[in-house]
Design a binder for these strands. Structure first.
Lengths: 342, 342
DNA sequence: TAGGGCTACGCAAACGTTGGCGTGTTGAAA
DNA sequence: TTTCAACACGCCAACGTTTGCGTAGCCCTA
């Protein structure tokens, strides 16, 4: 077992000083040709690679991005990570991933740990609990310490930083508009509880769309789901009691669950019920019928977030007052089998 | 913007030495009561937290686990990460995730970068290209340097290290056995090309099961898929030409694709065709009909891998010769709607 | 009053790097 | 022969932390 070789060992072996080795390896003109040759050959032979930790300590840069998301077993978040990782890698950064599991406390702890030198900045999406508590001191603190933060998808306006989001309200509006254009009047909404920012916005879009088309908004056509466990019964009740001719669901899971329940009740899709989901993930593609959905390009979103963070990290001091940006990612409707073509 | 406070700053402010501050904060009996009080109060006020990088450098421990997987937009891998992250966190470790995108070169580069001090050990699943090239020098090198490696799912026997796998062959055998027990004779296999280790093993299980039941194995009932693009046409040909009464697919995607294609061709599922998949993911649960599948508990698998790695990391020197283990994770068949109940 | 022991602290090394600056040696020009 | 530049290298500090060991000051005892 040969441990990693250090500058010191090379120096000792070659009977020169540590700094000579360092400079020789970095091709400094200070060092003579033959010494350089000797050092470089030796280093190559022993496969010398500088120690990242030592470099981080010296440079006060870790070349690492901290990602904090609610969960990873979720297609959208996985795609975002994928996008971040790609752009990060292209720019010489690594990513360290922490999951909050929708818990405020875990989010805080993770941030604090990573903020103590492990990362140069953060890309994050808020946990449900954090959105509910509206307590963002941990994020503010990190920003105050001079670490840039980029928030995506589940964001808050209470913290000033770069953000990457889709126009949730507009996207929802367009989805509902699409349904209205098809002639549906009895459009139900399956959404999350209000404190989830994206849920709230999508709900607003739904309401606005109906209002603009002079379709009355019935509260009992709106189902707000707290957690996935109890979702079936609520949707079932909606289908039975209200008999909507279309459903707009704010995520894939709600959409596919609606479809499955409807199928079980003998409601034909899309003939008797059209369904539109949100987030173009695996489920929408492979469910039968496949689901018409508002596509949200996670890879692109992650890539943009990474780009924004890295730009800020590599900004010169003088530019540092550049103000924060909020980037809107475009969405589009992917038409599939769950909406009728009438 | 108040930057992080260091021991040195506290020392200066309080007019004591750095080591006094350090010892006071760690409650050393060497330091007088009142000095301790003063230092601790000051540190708390300024929210002092030791710098992880400096600690890593000093202790030669990063408390970080490197994860290298082919891709993250893949339910199974996401669940494994989730399991790793959880156990890692419980033990004070963070995880740094790198994606190989099925590329040998990226796998090598990622490992080399992380091995230069960024992580204490690795948990990995091989990229397709690596399995094909059978070149594992990068892994061997890391192990030689004294960093433990735990491989999961896509492993190789050419490298000695801890491993966590399911008994792919047995699981496949049982799935096919299940189909045979239902009376099917015309059982097709949709699998990967042979160099993917798990694909190969599952194929072997299929063949063994048929052999044991004296059912002839027809090569043309076996479809080997290289990449997902061309998969539809091959499966379509199989369905049309061979008219199998059951299909065993080595992953979710192949299973759901088979089902969708069959449905398009008017083949009723499960009445005319039963399908069993592998990996109990989102797709199997939400597809219609939902898919009977061999469940592979990714969370548990990741947790076990993390546990094995951490145990080895925290092993005393003297125990270090403990030999490598390969842990088998149990699978079980989840019966759903895609297999007939006859 | 000298010696011993204890308390409470500081010094310095170490982890692995980098880079500014100081310096010994050489050779050539004056 | 003296002087000076250029070259080639080493020293040292710094990044932030921990910890073994040295020691100044004090009190107590013989």
């Amino acid at each position: 077992m040969k441990r990693k070789v250090t500058l010191k060992q090379i120096a000792k072996e070659l009977d020169v000083s540590i700094s000579t080795v360092s400079k020789a390896l970095r091709n400094s003109p200070e060092i003579g040709e033959d010494t350089k040759q000797k050092v470089q050959a030796f280093a190559k032979f022993y496969n010398y690679k500088p120690n990242n930790i030592a470099l981080s300590l010296k440079n006060k840069k870790t070349k690492t991005i901290g990602i904090i998301i609610p969960e990873i077993v979720h297609h959208f978040f996985a795609t975002v990570i994928s996008g971040i990782e790609q752009v990060a890698n292209e720019n010489g950064y690594n990513v360290i991933v922490c999951l909050s599991n929708e818990s405020f406390d875990k989010e805080v702890i993770n941030m604090e740990i990573l903020a103590n030198g492990s990362t140069d900045g953060f890309i994050m999406s808020l946990s449900k609990e954090t959105q509910q508590k509206k307590d963002f001191h941990h994020i503010q603190e990190v920003i105050n310490q001079g670490m840039p933060v980029v928030m995506f998808d589940r964001i808050t306006n209470d913290v000033l930083c770069d953000k990457v989001i889709i126009d949730d309200q507009l996207a929802a509006y367009e989805a509902v508009d699409f349904l209205v254009a098809k002639g549906f009047k009895n459009i139900a909404l399956v959404t999350t509880v209000d404190y989830v920012s994206v849920g709230r916005l999508r709900t607003d879009g739904y309401i606005n769309a109906l209002n603009d088309h002079d379709i009355p908004v019935h509260e009992d056509m709106i189902v707000k789901i707290e957690d996935i466990e109890g979702c079936a019964s609520k949707i079932e009740a909606l289908l039975k009691d209200k008999r909507p001719d279309a459903i707009f669901a704010v995520n894939e899971l709600f959409a596919v669950t609606s479809i499955k329940l409807a199928a079980k009740m003998g409601i034909k899709i899309p003939e008797e019920l059209s369904v539109i989901g949100f987030t173009d993930g695996i489920i929408s593609q492979f469910s039968s019928p496949s689901i018409t959905t508002v596509s949200q390009n996670g890879i692109y979103m992650g890539g943009r977030a990474a780009k924004m963070l890295i730009e800020r990290l590599e900004m010169e001091e003088e530019e540092e007052n550049e103000q924060y940006r909020t980037e809107l990612i475009e969405t589009h409707l992917v038409e599939r089998e769950s909406t009728s073509t009438m």
